[in-house]
Amino acid sequence: MTNKKTRSGGRVAKTSYYATLGPYSLWAMFFILVPLVFVAYYAFTDNNFNFTLEHIQRFFTATSQVIQEDGSSKEVYTYLVIFWRSLKLAVISTLICLVLAYPLAYIMARADAKTQKTFMTIIMIPMWMNFLIRTYAWMTILQDTGILNNFLTFFHLPGVHIIGTEAAVVIGMVYDYLPYMVLPLFSIMAKMDVKLIEAARDLGCNGFGVLRRVIWPLSLPGVINGVTMVLIPSVSTFYISQKLGDGKFFLIGDAIESQYVANNLHFAAAMAFILMVVLLVCMGIMQVLTNRHVEGGK
């Protein structure tokens, strides 16, 4: 539908339409397309810029020894383990974000304008603070002698060890990326026609039925947007994992950063390239699945 509109709009004033598009095309070209080409170019070349698959291969085959809890050591695929861990934590964080944001977005969408504004501000406020400061704040909260544990001991409850666990990393990511899930969900739910919900109730749906058969399918495009906007930055997240994971949970973002810092540009590019391809494939599959669902009427 949107496509049709732009197309017919373009027909009216084609020249001026392309004229306004020009600068943005240039921008996209130099700052998005060209860097992507460079990433790919670096990924498939060696230090002398000769074609090679060495870096791609290294990602899939490099191994290292890890010492297990019982003291014995075990050989694992270094980067595949890191990649798998990144993906796992990102998916967990994304799902938690979705579960938290979905009801919130629904409540906001049905609230009056003033309440909506208040909620929106509360959600946005953390984004005004620098991301490093936010991460340090969570460190002070989660540390073994941090605010959370002080609070628990005050009420004579057993303390918890969170810092340096995967849970801490997930908490940090959820906190950072939650707004990116709430906003697209809110915008799609605010547009939803209340009459459709009434119609569903009229036609025999109880509360859960309305959610399952009307609200959820109609909100899917928002869910996809939200998931994309949370999943992608959390897969490639770094720093949060270093600080809240106490350096124990190297993620793919950390790996890329450390290779880059160590001036292994080609290998860093190879990892970035693989990550990108995997994400593109994931998003593509999701898009196809939801298109089939959303446009079920055609």
């Binding site: 026609d193 009459k195 459709l196 009434e198 119609a199 569903a200 079920g296 009427g297």
Partner: peptide
Amino acid sequence: TVFQKYALFPHLN
């Protein structure tokens, strides 16, 4: 009920 603006479900045929 037949609603004023019909309220048909746009995601269904």
